[in-house]
């Protein structure tokens, strides 16, 4: 389990543009570096990030249905513990589902509820 730090305002007015910030702990090893013993360090990167918005009062447990809010692909030049911030126009209450996928089977899924009044 990687550690994440997600910042979303708890409530928003309908139509308001909110900022979503997501920080995840990950070494983002490039695959181009050597260890102090001279061995190649195997590549270990986060490859993709997606954030979907599922409309509804309860937390979405199913696979990501819903509307794609933001997606990113990561490459070797991204620093360790990557930080993302993006904007979203909140129209109805629902759940933000964020998924990071990467090498070595890295898969991190976090959900955050958003109440829109």
């Amino acid at each position: 389990m990687a550690r994440t730090l997600i910042t979303v305002p708890e409530t928003a007015k309908a139509g308001e543009i909110i900022e979503i910030k997501a920080l995840v702990q990950h070494p983002m090893e490039t695959g181009y570096r050597r260890s102090s013993d001279g061995d190649m360090l195997p590549r270990d990167l986060i490859r993709t990030f997606t954030c979907h918005f599922v409309v509804g009062p309860t937390a979405a447990s199913a696979a990501e249905a819903g509307e794609l809010v933001f997606a990113a692909t990561f490459h070797a030049a991204v620093a360790a513990n990557p930080y993302l911030s993006f904007n979203f126009r909140a129209t109805a209450s629902g759940t933000l589902v964020m998924v990071w996928n990467g090498d070595k089977g890295f898969a991190q899924r976090e959900t955050v509820n958003l109440r829109v009044s």
Binding site: R3, L5, Y83
Partner: peptide, 12 residues
């Protein structure tokens, strides 16, 4: 604090 990666350690 929402950007500071050290907060991941703090949370832990």
């Amino acid at each position: 604090d929402t950007q500071n990666p050290a907060m991941l350690w703090v949370k832990d």
